[in-house]
Amino acid sequence: MRIHRCRRWPRPLGRLLLLCLLAVVVPACSASAGTADVRLRDAATRGDADAVRVALEDGADLESRDGQGRTALLLATHGNNVDAARELIEAGADVNAKDAMQDSAYLYAGARGLDDILALTLAHGADLRSTNRYGGTALIPAAERGHVATVRTLLRAGVAVDHVNRLHWTALLEAILLGDGSPRHVQIVQLLLDAGANPELADGDGVTPLAHARRRGYTQMEALLRRAGARR
């Protein structure tokens, strides 16, 4: 009885066929993954949570970045797209991943008063000590821009109240220097002082919060600072 053996390709030819196959399959797989990454970022930008989910199911990389270093989560945060941001965060997106501008989803949400996304980042590992391109925590721009609820949230989370940025300003100084003296900024000054902000911690030129408030005619802030112990 004759036994027919399977025909084997000569080794050099077999290797050649394998290389050809890899040359076709590998780029196709890479292109597919790359397309999914683009779709993920586009869905995040549009705030389409369902499309975000589909892109992830198709193998999109949660931490893929665009030309400015922005992840899908940061793009969703820029648009205050809460549902898309939640989908990404619950899938494991890094809330502390920074772009070329040194913004992260956590820092941007804090600075812009995007409280729903901020709460999500705080619940998923936000680094309270991380800083922006000015060397400031999320608390400092939140105080400057008058985001009362955001300031309260960040203080409760434990962000350092007297952190000094590269401009030599604290959250208290920025609320006075860059605020408009409105009731919301007065309330922020009160919140900061209640949280233990040093009322006499001066700027890089040695000018104190009290002196800045006096120069600007912010009498309510001046009164709060004096009540907190400011003398100069």
Rank of each mutant, 00 (worst) to 15 (best):
V186D: 12
L167P: 06
P141E: 02
L193F: 02
R215Q: 15
V186N: 10
S130Y: 09
D115P: 09
G69F: 01
A84Q: 01
N81Y: 00
L201P: 04
T77N: 08
Y108P: 07
W169N: 15
R53D: 10
L21F: 12
L19Q: 10
T71C: 04
R86G: 01
Y108F: 15
L210N: 06
R15D: 10
R227M: 11
T219Q: 15
G92S: 03
H212Y: 13
R145F: 15
S30I: 15
L74D: 02
A43S: 06
R156F: 11
C6P: 13
R5F: 14
R216C: 11
G125I: 01
D194H: 10
R86P: 03
G135V: 10
D162C: 10
T71R: 02
R152D: 11
L19E: 07
L201T: 12
Q220C: 10
L16M: 09
E87V: 11
L120N: 01
G113Q: 03
T77M: 08
A28L: 07
T71E: 01
E90S: 09
Y108D: 08
H78W: 15
S130N: 12
R65C: 12
L107I: 02
D203E: 11
A100I: 13
V54E: 08
C20A: 14
A149H: 12
L88Q: 03
L128N: 01
R215Y: 13
D99S: 00
A93T: 04
Q220G: 14
T121N: 05
P12E: 04
R46V: 04
L75E: 05
V151Q: 05
R231M: 11
T150I: 03
A31M: 10
R232I: 12
H4S: 15
A230V: 05
V95R: 05
E87P: 06
R226P: 04
L17Q: 02
E222R: 08
Y106D: 06
R129T: 15
D83L: 11
G146L: 01
A60Y: 06
E174V: 14
L167D: 14
A97V: 07
R133W: 13
L13I: 13
A72W: 01
D61V: 02
L192N: 00
R232C: 12
E222T: 05
R232E: 13
D50F: 09
W9V: 06
V24S: 08
I89C: 01
Q220T: 12
G113K: 01
A171R: 06
V148P: 03
L201D: 09
A55M: 00
S64Y: 02
T150K: 07
A31E: 08
L75C: 03
A33Q: 12
R133P: 10
Q220W: 12
D115C: 09
G135E: 09
A138Y: 06
A175Y: 05
D116F: 08
G59E: 07
T137E: 05
A213H: 02
G14K: 02
R129N: 13
N132K: 10
L118G: 07
L17T: 02
G196P: 02
D61E: 03
L155C: 08
Y218T: 10
L56P: 00
